[in-house]
Amino acid sequence: MKKSVFLGSVAALAAVTGGAAMAAEGDTLKAVKDRGELICGVNTGLVGFAAPDASGNWTGFDVAVCKAVAAAVLGDPNKVKYVPTTGQTRFTALSSGEVDVLARNSTWTYSRDTDLKLDFIGVNYYDGQGFMVRKDLGVTSAKELDGATICIQTGTTTELNLADYFKANNMSYQPVNIDSNAEGEQQYMAGACDAYTTDASGLAATRAAFADPENHIILPEIISKEPLGPAVRHGDNNWGDIVRWTLNALIAAEEYGVTSTNIEELATNSENPEVQRLLGASDELGAMMGLDKDWAKRAILASGNYGEIFAKTIGEETPIGLARGLNAQWTQGGLLYAPPFR
C-alpha cells in the first residue's frame, strides 16, 4: 500500500512534467485571433493609468492602449483580458507568454530592452522623477535636500535615480524604504520623511488626493528620464509592429486632427492623403501586417486619439490634472512624433 502510494505519486509527477515543452516563439497575432481575446498586462492599480471601477471595468491611460490594440486586431475594444502584474512579475509574465502585451507604465531602459529580451514599441508617456515636500520645510529646490530623509519605493528605477542624483550633486540622504505608493503617502503624511520621491505623474496625483494639497509643493527639478511605454517580447516582430503602429496611429490621429467624433466623416471625405492612408480610405496599409484596412480607424474609435485619451484619464480636466508638457505633439513643443504612415 505504501509502495503503491509512492508509485502513484511518481505517476502523477510524470504526468505533470510529461507535458512540458519549451515555450515556442509563436505567432502572437494568430494566437490572439484564435483566442478572440487580447491578454494585456496592466498595473495592479495606478491612479489614472490603470484601475478597475466599482463594477470591475478597467479604465485608464495604459488601459486605453490595450483597448486600441484589441480594437485594431479583433475589432472590439472590450475583448481584452486584463492581467494585473506587480513590479516583480511584469516582465516574467510577458516573456513567459502569459500576456500578449505589457502596458504597465514601465520605463524603457537599455537593459530591459536587451537583456530582458523585451521590445519597447514606443513611448506613451514621458515621465520623470520629482520630489514633493511640505511647504513649511522651506525648501524650494531639490539641491537643498542635503541630509534629508526621503521616502522611496524599493525595486524601481526611482531608487537608482535618487542615488545617482545625490551622488552627482555631492549630497547625502537618508532613505526610508516603502513598498507601495499608499504606504509612501502614509509615511510622508506621518512625517517619517521630509520628501517623497516618485514619478512626477504619481506625485501630482498623490498631492491632488491630499486633504491639504496647498501645504505641499512639487519641486521643479526632474531628476530622471522615465519614458513609459508598452512592451512586447522579442521574437515576434510582426506583433511588435502591430502594437507599435497602433500607438503611432493614436498619436498621428491627434496630430492630423482625427478624433473619435469626426473620424467617420474624415474617413470618407478627408483631403489629407496621410489621413486617407491612416484611415484606410486609400492604400491597404493594414494588410502589410496582417490586418484589414480599417484597423487604425477602429483603434482610434476605441477611446479616441492620444489627446482625447490623455484628457479623459489624466489631463487637466481630471482631478489628477497633469499638463501635457513633454507629452504634447512635436508641433506643440512636446516629444510626441509619430513616423509617417506611408
Binding site: 498595473n43 495592479t44 492599480g45 495606478l46 491612479v47 489614472g48 490603470a50 484601475a51 478597475p52 471601477d53 494585473p84 507601495s180 505608493n181 499608499a182 503617502e185 496625483a205 498623490t206 491632488a208 488626493a209 491630499f210 486633504a211 481630471t318 482631478p319 489628477i320
Partner: peptide, 11 residues
Amino acid sequence: DFVRANFAWKG
C-alpha cells in the same frame, strides 16, 4: 491597491 487606484479613494 486597486480601490486606491481610483482617484475617488486615493489616500
